[in-house]
Design a protein around this nucleic acid. Structure first.
Lengths: 228, 228
DNA sequence: GAGGAGTCTTGATTTAAGTCAAGGACACCG
DNA sequence: CGGTGTCCTTGACTTAAATCAAGACTCCTC
């Protein structure tokens, strides 16, 4: 598969006419990062945005004393780092790879012109940002209105929905990373997983989570509380 | 001031040629809400979006047991409820007025076509959504990585920046609403305001907050802790 | 297959902030 | 005025989750 095909397959560029795809092919920078590398940091000036070809990238905020809150994890086909192109000029969060990752970098210069010429591209971009907003609103909801068991339940159900064998969910990330995504720490996550298992809501084996009582899980996700 | 002038003055429509402004004038619905009314609820199907002409609107998530987390408060000239036009079709949060509020409602039908025809409008919209994302990312950061005193400090500094007499900040909202915006409850906010006053960081008189020790405030906002 | 790093679990303890409850300040209205 | 409602404050108590600390497991590499 050559570069042009790869680019044409990116959802953000869906519906773009061939000449524009070619134009993108000309300006793209193909980059590969090792696991655990930083792509950019909160506050860095932005000169373009990225699309994940393969691998995984976490977008996160961090506090001076080293705690991290993951905002999003992006996989193949997803774009990130677009915000500074339209507002502010610097990245609003950090980005690190979670595994070896190949990225396409699109320099800002020229890309904005392309958006102005291609309504389809603008619409795709608006869709992407809107979905991101929706997702962040859900994260705030979880962090602020639910306790950790509720957040975990919501997460499992969410992953389960996007799955074909919905009762056995494979966690795509480590439990430590999951804890950070849920706004907690590994110890707490571990305890809650243990408690939920012992209450017959699900079983956990490594990264494999099997849902036993989906109703109770849904109840929990709706801000219900886990009986002590 | 007639309708067309009002519409031309909305930041989102900046740079739009007159014929398009006229088009918007034709489709706009002028609405007035009393204080405390619901504009839409989380999950409602969306048929368009809104712009605040005057007044204040809070966008918030709420839990079954009645707790609320405010995501944003919009004032004159700001747009809200655009997300469902580009993703999902239903509103991702609730919207209520905080005082008597006049709104322009723009039906989805036709508006999307206008965006496709007017790159300037698309760019403005991308800018608006990007700023919103930035703001939500900051909220997550605050909720997850800072304690309540840190969030309050960050809020005060934020308001102070957007002000001309930066050392005396007038809170635009009630303390109860501020608590909800900071992800806490009025009792906690009250206690922390009292503690910060007693420590000589600032003085509080009703809605008027006077910053005394800006350095300490900035330190606190950076996830520092309030000495007990 | 032994050593080691990273990851996860479990236990004891602390702490920030939420809950429950009551009282005070203030404004608006008859 | 006195009354009623909203908003805010203060106090005593509870609780979810963080912290601190130690040990177990897994997966590499040598």
């Amino acid at each position: 598969m050559d570069l042009t095909e790869h680019i044409a397959a990116i959802p953000l560029f869906e519906g773009l006419p061939d000449p524009q795809i070619e134009e993108l092919t000309d300006i793209v920078v193909d980059q590969t990062f090792k696991r655990g590398q930083s792509i950019f940091s909160d506050g860095d000036p932005a000169t373009g945005f990225y699309v994940v070809v393969n691998g995984k990238v976490k977008i996160y905020k961090s506090s001076p004393d080293g705690k991290e809150q993951i905002l999003h994890i992006f996989g193949a086909g997803e774009a990130f780092g677009e915000v500074p192109m339209f507002a502010g000029g610097h990245f609003p969060a950090n980005a690190d790879t979670l595994e070896q990752t190949r990225l396409f970098f699109f320099p800002r210069a020229g890309f904005v012109d392309l958006i102005k010429q291609e309504p389809m591209l603008a619409m795709n971009m608006l869709g992407a940002l809107s979905r991101r907003l929706r997702m962040l609103a859900a994260l705030v909801d979880n962090l602020s209105l639910k306790e950790v068991p509720g957040r975990l339940a919501a997460y499992i159900l969410h992953v389960s929905e996007a799955d074909d064998s919905p009762d056995v969910v494979e966690l795509a990330i480590s439990k430590g990373q999951l804890a950070s995504l849920l706004g907690t720490i590994p110890e707490t996550l571990s305890r809650i997983l243990a408690k939920m298992s012992s209450q017959g809501i699900m079983t956990v084996d490594g990264k494999k989570v099997s849902i036993i009582d989906r109703r109770k899980l849904a109840e929990l996700a709706e801000s219900g509380k886990l009986p002590t």
